[in-house]
Design a protein around this nucleic acid. Structure first.
Lengths: 336, 336
DNA sequence: CTGAAAGCGCTTACAG
DNA sequence: CTGAAAGCGCTTACAG
């Protein structure tokens, strides 16, 4: 690869002048600019981003910390949205190791040694040591689904409370009075918000909150399957269940079917996420739509805004959720 | 962040000596080494990878070019495998833009300006200009599912031919004689190999190859749906169909059901990939398993081997495929 | 065993 | 408007 020195020689000017042309400085004569541009074209010169970064302190790289597998459907959509926003921004995306609990590994050191301009974090709780260090370090950061903020850290999530409230209302209107909830991991921000939405939803229709109607889980198919089994073993099982993820809902439905019951004939099921697999699944899943792609796009857009302007206030954004009604919910069989 | 100069000052030695300690040079006295290590610990010093890269010419970064969406289930598994192999390697992964057809964008320039040590490519055909440039440039590269090689470029794929052959045999043994094939994009390496496997499979059982039993597609659900519709409109429709992807198989099954027929009662369907969605789908899909995770792992392992040793011969590896039998294939209804 | 110096490919005051 | 020089944070011959 040609370097800036080669270009300078070819054009018969100094490297400083070449640099000025590359960076669109105004104080270069038209004649010189032409000469330099010609030399650049002739040598197919491209400035070395690495070298430039060393002096400007910017790497034109944003990191992404994913504390979940790539096979997580939420992550796929998120990345797809991020990619869209990245495309013409000049920034590239670097995946960062998620060895957060390895004592030999320091996430923040990693970010520093790579000169990262900004970070998107998904799937890590805000009380984690690495996250605290990251916030302290003052590197522009956007948290997805984690309610953390800092001087240079904002976050973005879906309107979780209202999503679940809409689900409760939908089931109530179908005549359900025994509505259970298959929850996520206790303590996680998203889980607490959704749980709050569930309680608020019940309250809005004067339905009592029952401890035994809430089962913790981990968003997976298996956790939905097992959670549903527990609910069905209750003396008074629910007639409807809201799940904290579509995958858990899939598991719940198969658990219901495995006991010889039908969805929605016997029990109605609502998911959360509206991942593309809902289109494949039978019965079609009624679920709460998250605009994951938009969250991906905005997380990057806001991050870049923070990078570009040190005074840009760290955003806290909530994307609207909506209810998508398919086949897995129906009129309650028994009104108690 | 502390720099190497800060450490040198703190330890009372030169930066050259600090550098030697960091890089485990043997010619440093134990006493000096101790002093330096202490200073490093005290200042929480981490060498700047960027600066180091500028002089060594290595960025400790491998790029990945994905010419498909992140939501593609194959990609998710591939990335998950790559991640595994990357974890303790010291290399980080950078996603590269896929603006391959944008005249303002040069993939190879991008790689150079980022000083990438190696590249993994998926979903681009070998005759694409960017790919040719990449091979010429001599940057270590591993192609996934693309039959390209170069002085420093190898590739890895599944045993596509044999996979399809096994599917034909399975169907033949179930009594099927009218076996159709829902193909992928003509010209793509993977497609040609699978098509060859289909023909070989038919040949092995003396079944005639019929043009009208092969329909091109693009691996998607919709293409499977439409392709199956075409097959079912034939005067003598097939009793079994092999699909070039699981997603296409899902589409094909729904097309069959939409016409009031059943799988496998009326028509047997085989997929390709064994993505995790096959577990969700009903009926359970008989499919050809690709060990995608292993392909991800090996693509990185081989790439790193090439990076480390300029004389490491570019590997061409074929991962075995296997048939996974579930519910979507059954005994042929009519023997012709 | 240790360190001064040159250099990787850039940018940025600053002097002219 | 142009360029010499210093410097970003490192590594690597080379001299001592």
């Amino acid at each position: 690869m040609a370097s800036i020195h080669d270009v300078a020689k070819e054009a018969g000017v100094s490297v400083a002048t070449v640099s000025k042309v590359i960076n669109h400085y105004p104080d270069v004569s038209e004649k010189t600019r032409k000469k330099v541009k010609l030399a650049i074209a002739r040598l197919r010169y491209r400035p070395n981003v690495i070298a430039r970064g060393l002096v400007t302190g910017r790497s034109w790289t944003v990191g992404v910390l994913l504390h979940v597998p790539f096979t997580n459907p939420y992550v796929s959509m998120l990345l797809e949205g991020m990619k869209t926003a990245l495309e013409h921004s000049g920034y590239d995306l670097m995946r960062l190791s998620a060895r957060l609990n390895d004592p030999d590994y320091s996430f923040i050191d990693h970010c520093h040694s790579r000169n990262l301009d900004g970070i998107v974090v998904f799937g890590v709780e805000k009380d984690h040591r690495s996250i605290q260090e990251l916030i302290q370090a003052g590197i522009p950061t956007m948290f997805v689904d984690t309610d953390a903020t800092g001087l240079r850290a904002g976050n973005i999530t879906t309107d979780n409370r209202n999503g679940i409230r809409m689900a409760v209302q939908h089931l109530f209107e179908l005549g359900h009075r025994r509505i259970a909830y298959l929850a996520g991991v206790p303590g996680q921000d998203v889980n607490e918000l959704r749980l709050a939405g569930y309680r608020e939803g019940l309250g809005a229709f004067s339905l009592a909150y029952r401890e035994d109607y809430v089962v913790d889980g981990d968003y997976s198919y298996d956790s939905g399957f097992q959670g549903m089994n527990r609910l069905m073993e209750l003396d008074v099982p629910p007639t409807a269940v809201i799940c904290t993820s579509d995958m858990a809902a899939f598991g719940a439905i198969r658990a219901i079917e495995a006991r010889g019951f039908t969805v929605p004939g016997d029990i109605s099921v609502v998911g959360f996420d509206n991942i593309f697999e809902t289109e494949l699944f039978k019965p079609g899943l009624t679920t709460i739509n998250q605009n994951i792609h938009a969250i991906g796009v905005k997380s990057i857009e806001e991050l870049i805004a923070m990078i570009k302007d040190p005074k840009y206030p760290p955003p806290v954004v909530t994307e609207p959720s909506s209810l998508v009604i398919r086949e897995s919910t129906g009129i309650a069989k028994v009104i108690t």
